[in-house]
Write a protein that binds this DNA or RNA. Structure first.
Lengths: 149, 149
DNA sequence: GTACAAGTTCAAGTTAGCTTGAAGTCAAGT
DNA sequence: ACTTGACTTCAAGCTAACTTGAACTTGTAC
């Protein structure tokens, strides 16, 4: 039962690719000591941190946002039950927003099909404001669905 | 009242940037005649086609999928009420799937917070199968949420 | 001592859906 | 004639979150 884990072991246990772990390491989401050889050595607590990252991603947070959340924890500490609960309401709130938005979309869709208008000017579905609001290049992430920045 | 519209006019009426319209044109989503000058000229029906594209994007279809749908219409025809209705069930179905998935996510989140486990091996939230299933590079679109390829 | 797996860094590639810029053409107004 | 604005093509850039490849070093097993 080793105290410190290699990147390969962490990868296996977490299901996250080693390349991704190096990437997280570079971005400061996780941190490692180095063995004399220069190889990364991770404490077990890193697994909870990784779990946190994975879950947060599923909720829809970007890595930057996740990094910000992790920065609010005592340095290098893995999130515990308390932190979990502090975040839970924010996260479920976020999911709820997404659900609500999809339901609104669903509603307008059925409406539009009912009336058969398919008019860009009138139909709520086209939602030109949202589209106009997204400036610059890049894929249109969730196409006008992002709540705040 | 001109019969044919310039790309700028189409852009204004649809709210879609001219650069995007050229992009759609190149991808075959819309098609144009050319004036003697080489400038694009669009029939009015293009507005309905564009509406179709915009709506389909909001539902979550990729441009490739949208192109496939449009290919099933008589060539160069704008989608009418019938086409609309034929597609409506597919689309609302798709939205429903997404909603269901978010609700599942919400459920596991509350569960996980209740038990405080935050274990990558046991917790339903981490969902290693989904993650393992996404191969290759590129951003993890909707992080493991995509139903079929 | 010689494989071979597993680790390292760093740069470049991948995806989608556009945008931006460069360099030039065309049309209308003064 | 000259400017202004709208249009053209084509190549390159942007974003996020990684992956892939090259070139090299370390650690373990036989």
């Amino acid at each position: 039962m080793a105290e410190l884990l290699t990147i390969g072991e962490v990868s296996q246990r977490s299901g996250v690719a080693a390349s991704a772990l190096r990437f997280y390491d570079d971005r400061g989401l996780i941190s490692s000591e180095r063995a004399g050889s220069g190889h990364r050595r991770y404490p077990r607590s890193v697994l909870r941190r990784i779990a946190f990252v994975v879950f947060a991603q599923r909720v829809g947070l970007t890595l930057d946002e996740i990094a910000a959340e992790l920065d609010r924890l005592p340095p290098h500490r893995a999130p515990g039950r308390r932190d979990w609960q502090r975040l839970s309401s924010t996260w479920t709130g976020r999911i709820d927003e997404k659900i609500a938005e999809l339901q609104r979309l669903r509603g307008s869709l059925t409406e539009c099909i009912g009336c058969g208008c398919l008019s860009l000017e009138r139909c709520a579905l086209s939602n030109p404001e949202d589209r106009a609001a997204r400036l610059g290049p890049g894929p249109r992430w969730w196409l006008g669905d992002r709540p705040t920045g």
